[in-house]
């Protein structure tokens, strides 16, 4: 039997008395909101494809359209309301990434255009881009090595 420290005991007790959100309800909401955003993306994709655009350009335009939508909804202060309801459903799609960029840009404009907006716009987006680039670089390196043989 392991001896629990006072801190571990207290943390376990805190966990027990802290009310938790209704997980199933949250999951359903996340499913609904995430599903709707992705369906919206599909709608845009199909429309662009029917206009004769190739696969790659369609994907890029779809991302741009969703990003623009998220930016507008954030500016109008509606995205936080969607996120409050949808949780991961609004965080996981590309619109969540756009929200993190624009929210920081709007909030920190008061601190100036260079060190406010300029620097803080990357507060949440920066790590995503950085680790995306690092992980794909390493994986690409492995791919490059495998191609040598």
């Amino acid at each position: 039997m392991t001896v629990k420290t006072k801190e571990e005991k207290y943390n376990a007790y805190v966990k027990q008395v802290t009310p938790t959100t209704n997980m199933w309800l949250n999951i359903c909401k996340a499913f609904l909101v995430g599903g709707i955003i992705c369906t919206l993306g599909q709608l845009i994709t199909n429309w662009l494809k029917s206009g004769g655009l190739n696969q790659e350009d369609t994907a890029a335009w779809t991302s741009l359209a969703l990003i623009l939508l998220s930016v507008i909804l954030t500016g109008l202060n509606l995205y936080p309301k969607i996120a409050k309801f949808g949780g991961a459903g609004s965080l996981v799609p590309i619109t969540g990434f756009a929200n993190s960029v624009v929210a920081a840009a709007i909030e920190f404009k008061k601190e100036g255009w260079v060190f406010g907006v300029g620097a803080k716009i990357f507060t949440i987006a920066g790590p995503v881009i950085l680790y995306g680039i690092i992980s794909s670089w390493f994986l690409g390196l492995i791919y490059w090595i495998t191609q040598l043989f």
Binding site: T21, T74, A83, A103, A104, I124
Partner: peptide, 17 residues
Amino acid sequence: EKTFRFPLEYGNQRPFS
């Protein structure tokens, strides 16, 4: 919020605690 948490326009869920 700005000092300790997120920008106000950032979407997130607050736990009951």
